[in-house]
Protein backbone atom coordinates (compact mmCIF):
# COMPACT_ATOMS: atom_id res chain seq x y z
CA UNK A 1 0.00 0.00 0.00
CA UNK A 2 2.79 2.35 1.01
CA UNK A 3 4.69 1.45 -2.16
CA UNK A 4 1.63 2.10 -4.30
CA UNK A 5 1.12 5.57 -2.83
CA UNK A 6 4.80 6.39 -3.00
CA UNK A 7 5.11 5.38 -6.64
CA UNK A 8 1.96 7.30 -7.48
CA UNK A 9 3.32 10.48 -5.94
CA UNK A 10 6.68 9.96 -7.60
CA UNK A 11 5.01 9.30 -10.94
CA UNK A 12 2.91 12.46 -10.71
CA UNK A 13 5.96 14.54 -9.80
CA UNK A 14 7.96 13.01 -12.65
CA UNK A 15 5.15 13.64 -15.10
CA UNK A 16 5.00 17.30 -14.07
CA UNK A 17 8.75 17.73 -14.22
CA UNK A 18 9.30 15.83 -17.44
CA UNK A 19 6.44 17.20 -19.54
CA UNK A 20 8.03 20.57 -20.46
CA UNK A 21 11.41 18.87 -20.73
CA UNK A 22 10.05 16.44 -23.30
CA UNK A 23 8.60 19.28 -25.36
CA UNK A 24 11.92 21.07 -25.15
CA UNK A 25 13.81 17.94 -26.09
CA UNK A 26 11.56 17.47 -29.11
CA UNK A 27 12.14 21.03 -30.29
CA UNK A 28 15.87 20.67 -29.76
CA UNK A 29 16.00 17.38 -31.65
CA UNK A 30 14.04 18.81 -34.55
CA UNK A 31 16.35 21.79 -34.75
CA UNK A 32 19.47 19.61 -34.57
CA UNK A 33 18.19 17.39 -37.35
CA UNK A 34 17.74 20.44 -39.53
CA UNK A 35 21.26 21.57 -38.75
CA UNK A 36 20.22 24.43 -36.47
CA UNK A 37 21.51 24.77 -32.97
CA UNK A 38 18.03 24.98 -31.42
CA UNK A 39 16.91 26.27 -28.03
CA UNK A 40 17.98 24.40 -24.93
CA UNK A 41 15.61 21.63 -23.82
CA UNK A 42 15.12 23.64 -20.64
CA UNK A 43 13.56 26.50 -22.58
CA UNK A 44 9.89 25.48 -22.03
CA UNK A 45 10.49 25.46 -18.28
CA UNK A 46 12.01 28.94 -18.50
CA UNK A 47 9.01 30.10 -20.55
CA UNK A 48 6.62 28.74 -17.96
CA UNK A 49 8.42 30.50 -15.13
CA UNK A 50 8.40 33.74 -17.08
CA UNK A 51 4.73 33.45 -17.97
CA UNK A 52 3.86 32.86 -14.32
CA UNK A 53 5.56 36.10 -13.37
CA UNK A 54 3.51 38.08 -15.88
CA UNK A 55 0.10 39.55 -15.26
CA UNK A 56 -2.67 37.86 -17.30
CA UNK A 57 -4.62 40.21 -19.55
CA UNK A 58 -8.26 39.27 -19.99
CA UNK A 59 -10.34 40.57 -22.88
CA UNK A 60 -13.00 43.08 -21.95
CA UNK A 61 -15.89 40.72 -22.53
CA UNK A 62 -14.19 37.64 -21.10
CA UNK A 63 -16.40 35.67 -18.75
CA UNK A 64 -15.43 33.36 -15.92
CA UNK A 65 -14.91 30.60 -18.50
CA UNK A 66 -11.63 32.15 -19.61
CA UNK A 67 -10.24 32.09 -16.10
CA UNK A 68 -11.62 28.71 -15.01
CA UNK A 69 -11.12 26.58 -18.14
CA UNK A 70 -7.30 26.41 -17.98
CA UNK A 71 -7.40 25.06 -14.44
CA UNK A 72 -10.09 22.53 -15.32
CA UNK A 73 -8.27 21.34 -18.43
CA UNK A 74 -5.00 21.10 -16.55
CA UNK A 75 -6.60 19.13 -13.73
CA UNK A 76 -8.23 16.67 -16.14
CA UNK A 77 -5.01 16.17 -18.10
CA UNK A 78 -3.04 15.81 -14.90
CA UNK A 79 -5.39 13.11 -13.67
CA UNK A 80 -5.12 11.33 -17.02
CA UNK A 81 -1.33 11.58 -16.82
CA UNK A 82 -1.41 10.16 -13.30
CA UNK A 83 -3.31 7.12 -14.58
CA UNK A 84 -0.96 6.12 -17.41
CA UNK A 85 1.76 3.91 -16.01
CA UNK A 86 5.26 5.21 -16.61
CA UNK A 87 8.07 3.45 -14.83
CA UNK A 88 5.93 1.14 -12.75
CA UNK A 89 2.62 -0.63 -12.60
CA UNK A 90 0.36 -1.09 -9.61
CA UNK A 91 0.35 2.51 -8.49
CA UNK A 92 -2.31 3.71 -6.08
CA UNK A 93 -4.66 4.81 -8.86
CA UNK A 94 -4.05 1.65 -10.88
CA UNK A 95 -7.61 0.48 -10.31
CA UNK A 96 -8.93 3.67 -11.95
CA UNK A 97 -6.57 3.50 -14.93
CA UNK A 98 -9.07 2.61 -17.58
CA UNK A 99 -8.53 3.30 -21.27
CA UNK A 100 -12.10 4.50 -21.78
CA UNK A 101 -11.80 6.84 -18.81
CA UNK A 102 -8.55 8.13 -20.27
CA UNK A 103 -10.40 8.98 -23.48
CA UNK A 104 -13.10 10.69 -21.43
CA UNK A 105 -10.62 12.80 -19.47
CA UNK A 106 -8.88 13.90 -22.64
CA UNK A 107 -12.27 14.81 -24.11
CA UNK A 108 -12.99 16.85 -20.99
CA UNK A 109 -9.80 18.87 -21.33
CA UNK A 110 -10.45 19.29 -25.06
CA UNK A 111 -13.92 20.64 -24.36
CA UNK A 112 -12.55 23.07 -21.76
CA UNK A 113 -10.01 24.33 -24.26
CA UNK A 114 -12.65 24.79 -26.95
CA UNK A 115 -14.92 26.69 -24.56
CA UNK A 116 -12.10 28.98 -23.54
CA UNK A 117 -11.44 29.63 -27.21
CA UNK A 118 -15.07 30.55 -27.84
CA UNK A 119 -15.39 32.82 -24.83
CA UNK A 120 -14.26 36.05 -26.47
CA UNK A 121 -16.22 35.45 -29.65
CA UNK A 122 -13.23 36.06 -31.88
CA UNK A 123 -12.95 34.56 -35.32
CA UNK A 124 -9.82 32.48 -34.85
CA UNK A 125 -10.87 31.06 -31.52
CA UNK A 126 -14.09 29.73 -32.99
CA UNK A 127 -12.26 28.43 -36.04
CA UNK A 128 -9.75 26.52 -33.94
CA UNK A 129 -12.46 25.14 -31.65
CA UNK A 130 -14.56 23.94 -34.57
CA UNK A 131 -11.60 22.22 -36.20
CA UNK A 132 -10.27 20.64 -33.02
CA UNK A 133 -13.66 19.21 -32.12
CA UNK A 134 -14.21 18.00 -35.68
CA UNK A 135 -10.93 16.12 -35.72
CA UNK A 136 -11.96 14.37 -32.53
CA UNK A 137 -15.00 13.00 -34.38
CA UNK A 138 -12.63 10.82 -36.39
CA UNK A 139 -9.96 10.28 -33.77
CA UNK A 140 -12.33 8.99 -31.10
CA UNK A 141 -13.72 5.96 -32.99
CA UNK A 142 -10.21 4.98 -34.10
CA UNK A 143 -9.07 5.16 -30.48
CA UNK A 144 -12.04 3.09 -29.32
CA UNK A 145 -11.35 0.40 -31.90
CA UNK A 146 -7.73 0.19 -30.71
CA UNK A 147 -9.10 -0.14 -27.17
CA UNK A 148 -11.32 -2.95 -28.44
CA UNK A 149 -8.31 -4.79 -29.82
CA UNK A 150 -6.56 -4.56 -26.46
CA UNK A 151 -9.71 -5.48 -24.58
CA UNK A 152 -10.01 -8.66 -26.65
CA UNK A 153 -6.36 -9.55 -26.15
CA UNK A 154 -6.17 -8.76 -22.44
CA UNK A 155 -9.77 -9.31 -21.37
CA UNK A 156 -10.44 -5.81 -20.13
CA UNK A 157 -9.73 -2.12 -20.51
CA UNK A 158 -7.64 -1.60 -17.40
CA UNK A 159 -4.24 -0.30 -18.40
CA UNK A 160 -2.35 -2.15 -15.70
CA UNK A 161 -3.97 -5.43 -16.67
CA UNK A 162 -3.32 -4.85 -20.37
CA UNK A 163 0.30 -3.93 -19.72
CA UNK A 164 0.82 -7.02 -17.58
CA UNK A 165 -0.76 -9.27 -20.20
CA UNK A 166 1.39 -7.76 -22.95
CA UNK A 167 4.53 -7.94 -20.87
CA UNK A 168 4.07 -11.66 -20.27
CA UNK A 169 4.57 -12.07 -23.98
CA UNK A 170 1.94 -14.77 -24.14
CA UNK A 171 0.16 -12.77 -26.81
CA UNK A 172 3.06 -12.81 -29.25
CA UNK A 173 3.46 -10.52 -32.20
CA UNK A 174 0.25 -9.95 -34.02
CA UNK A 175 -0.90 -8.31 -37.21
CA UNK A 176 -3.70 -6.79 -35.20
CA UNK A 177 -1.25 -5.15 -32.84
CA UNK A 178 0.71 -3.74 -35.77
CA UNK A 179 -2.47 -2.30 -37.26
CA UNK A 180 -3.55 -0.94 -33.88
CA UNK A 181 -0.11 0.63 -33.48
CA UNK A 182 -0.41 2.48 -36.78
CA UNK A 183 -3.93 3.63 -35.93
CA UNK A 184 -2.98 4.74 -32.42
CA UNK A 185 0.03 6.64 -33.76
CA UNK A 186 -2.23 8.56 -36.12
CA UNK A 187 -4.63 9.30 -33.28
CA UNK A 188 -1.75 10.45 -31.08
CA UNK A 189 -0.52 12.82 -33.78
CA UNK A 190 -3.99 14.31 -34.16
CA UNK A 191 -4.67 14.57 -30.43
CA UNK A 192 -1.41 16.37 -29.79
CA UNK A 193 -1.69 18.66 -32.77
CA UNK A 194 1.56 17.46 -34.32
CA UNK A 195 2.57 17.54 -37.96
CA UNK A 196 0.92 16.47 -40.33
CA UNK A 197 -2.38 17.30 -38.62
CA UNK A 198 -1.40 20.63 -37.09
CA UNK A 199 1.83 22.55 -36.83
CA UNK A 200 2.74 23.35 -33.22
CA UNK A 201 5.27 25.96 -34.29
CA UNK A 202 3.20 27.84 -36.84
CA UNK A 203 2.74 31.59 -36.77
CA UNK A 204 0.15 31.72 -39.55
CA UNK A 205 -3.28 31.99 -37.95
CA UNK A 206 -5.20 30.51 -40.86
CA UNK A 207 -3.38 27.19 -40.60
CA UNK A 208 -3.59 27.02 -36.82
CA UNK A 209 -5.77 24.62 -34.94
CA UNK A 210 -4.46 24.27 -31.42
CA UNK A 211 -2.57 27.55 -31.30
CA UNK A 212 -5.55 29.49 -32.65
CA UNK A 213 -7.44 28.65 -29.49
CA UNK A 214 -4.74 30.14 -27.28
CA UNK A 215 -4.48 33.52 -28.99
CA UNK A 216 -6.29 35.29 -26.16
CA UNK A 217 -4.55 33.51 -23.30
CA UNK A 218 -1.74 35.23 -21.47
CA UNK A 219 0.22 35.09 -18.24
CA UNK A 220 -0.50 32.14 -15.98
CA UNK A 221 -3.43 31.06 -18.15
CA UNK A 222 -1.10 30.62 -21.10
CA UNK A 223 1.37 28.85 -18.84
CA UNK A 224 -1.37 26.42 -17.84
CA UNK A 225 -2.32 25.77 -21.44
CA UNK A 226 1.31 25.18 -22.38
CA UNK A 227 1.70 22.84 -19.44
CA UNK A 228 -1.46 21.02 -20.42
CA UNK A 229 -0.24 20.49 -23.98
CA UNK A 230 3.13 19.26 -22.74
CA UNK A 231 1.49 16.87 -20.28
CA UNK A 232 -0.76 15.54 -23.02
CA UNK A 233 2.22 14.79 -25.24
CA UNK A 234 4.06 13.04 -22.43
CA UNK A 235 0.92 11.11 -21.58
CA UNK A 236 0.48 9.87 -25.13
CA UNK A 237 4.09 8.84 -25.51
CA UNK A 238 3.92 7.03 -22.17
CA UNK A 239 0.72 5.34 -23.28
CA UNK A 240 2.34 4.16 -26.50
CA UNK A 241 5.34 2.93 -24.54
CA UNK A 242 3.13 1.12 -22.02
CA UNK A 243 1.11 -0.60 -24.73
CA UNK A 244 3.66 -1.39 -27.40
CA UNK A 245 6.98 -1.41 -25.51
CA UNK A 246 5.83 -2.97 -22.24
CA UNK A 247 9.11 -4.68 -21.39
CA UNK A 248 11.09 -3.75 -18.33
CA UNK A 249 8.31 -2.03 -16.40
CA UNK A 250 8.61 -2.46 -12.65
CA UNK A 251 5.89 -3.56 -10.25
CA UNK A 252 5.20 -1.10 -7.46
CA UNK A 253 5.71 -3.82 -4.87
CA UNK A 254 9.18 -4.74 -6.09
CA UNK A 255 10.99 -1.97 -4.29
CA UNK A 256 13.15 1.01 -5.19
CA UNK A 257 15.78 -0.93 -7.11
CA UNK A 258 13.25 -2.20 -9.62
CA UNK A 259 11.74 1.29 -9.78
CA UNK A 260 15.09 2.77 -10.72
CA UNK A 261 15.51 0.20 -13.45
CA UNK A 262 11.98 0.86 -14.73
CA UNK A 263 12.63 4.57 -14.60
CA UNK A 264 15.77 4.28 -16.69
CA UNK A 265 13.97 2.19 -19.28
CA UNK A 266 10.99 4.55 -19.34
CA UNK A 267 13.23 7.53 -19.97
CA UNK A 268 15.01 5.62 -22.72
CA UNK A 269 11.71 4.69 -24.35
CA UNK A 270 10.50 8.30 -24.17
CA UNK A 271 13.74 9.54 -25.68
CA UNK A 272 13.48 6.97 -28.46
CA UNK A 273 9.88 7.91 -29.22
CA UNK A 274 10.77 11.61 -29.17
CA UNK A 275 13.60 10.95 -31.61
CA UNK A 276 11.26 9.04 -33.91
CA UNK A 277 8.65 11.78 -33.68
CA UNK A 278 11.19 14.49 -34.43
CA UNK A 279 12.45 12.58 -37.45
CA UNK A 280 8.92 11.99 -38.68
CA UNK A 281 7.92 15.63 -38.26
CA UNK A 282 10.98 16.82 -40.12
CA UNK A 283 10.38 14.39 -42.96
CA UNK A 284 6.76 15.27 -43.59
CA UNK A 285 4.71 18.36 -44.38
CA UNK A 286 1.51 19.55 -42.76
CA UNK A 287 -1.56 18.44 -44.67
CA UNK A 288 -4.59 20.51 -45.60
CA UNK A 289 -7.25 20.66 -42.92
CA UNK A 290 -9.76 18.79 -45.04
CA UNK A 291 -7.36 15.95 -45.70
CA UNK A 292 -7.14 15.23 -41.97
CA UNK A 293 -10.42 13.25 -41.99
CA UNK A 294 -8.93 11.03 -44.69
CA UNK A 295 -5.82 10.53 -42.58
CA UNK A 296 -7.81 9.70 -39.46
CA UNK A 297 -10.38 7.75 -41.47
CA UNK A 298 -7.56 5.57 -42.75
CA UNK A 299 -6.48 5.05 -39.13
CA UNK A 300 -10.06 4.13 -38.24
CA UNK A 301 -10.24 1.58 -41.03
CA UNK A 302 -6.89 0.06 -40.11
CA UNK A 303 -8.01 -0.28 -36.51
CA UNK A 304 -11.21 -1.92 -37.73
CA UNK A 305 -9.14 -4.28 -39.85
CA UNK A 306 -6.97 -5.10 -36.86
CA UNK A 307 -10.02 -5.95 -34.78
CA UNK A 308 -11.47 -8.10 -37.55
CA UNK A 309 -8.19 -10.02 -37.84
CA UNK A 310 -8.33 -10.54 -34.12
CA UNK A 311 -11.81 -12.01 -34.47
CA UNK A 312 -10.53 -14.34 -37.15
CA UNK A 313 -7.58 -15.55 -35.15
CA UNK A 314 -9.61 -16.03 -31.97
CA UNK A 315 -12.08 -17.96 -34.09
CA UNK A 316 -9.29 -20.15 -35.46
CA UNK A 317 -7.44 -20.75 -32.23
Amino acid sequence: MMAALLTQALHLALMLALAPLLTGLLRWLKARMLGRRGPSPLQPWRDLVKLCRKRPVLAENASLVTSIAPYAACAATLLAAALVPGFTRGMALGGLADLLLLGGLLALSRAALALAAMDIGSAFGGLGAAREMSFAVFAEPAFLLCVMAFAILAGGTNLDAIGAALQDGALGLRVSLALALVALLAVALAENGRIPVDNPATHLELTMVHEAMLLEASGRHLALWEMQAALRLLLWLSLLAALFLPFGMAEAAEGPLAWAQGLGLWLAKLAGLALALAGFENAIAKMRVFRVPEFLGAALLLALLGVVFLFLSTGLA
Partner: peptide
Protein backbone atom coordinates in the same frame (compact mmCIF):
# COMPACT_ATOMS: atom_id res chain seq x y z
CA UNK B 1 -0.81 28.93 -9.38
CA UNK B 2 -1.96 31.41 -6.79
CA UNK B 3 1.31 30.86 -5.00
CA UNK B 4 3.47 30.85 -8.13
CA UNK B 5 1.78 33.73 -9.89
CA UNK B 6 0.21 36.10 -7.38
CA UNK B 7 -0.36 39.09 -9.65
CA UNK B 8 -3.99 39.98 -10.33
CA UNK B 9 -5.23 39.94 -13.89
CA UNK B 10 -6.13 43.09 -15.79
CA UNK B 11 -8.73 43.77 -18.45
CA UNK B 12 -7.80 44.91 -21.92
CA UNK B 13 -9.19 44.91 -25.43
CA UNK B 14 -9.39 41.53 -27.16
CA UNK B 15 -6.25 40.81 -29.11
CA UNK B 16 -6.99 38.15 -31.72
CA UNK B 17 -4.98 39.62 -34.58
Amino acid sequence: LRWLSPRASVRGPAWDC
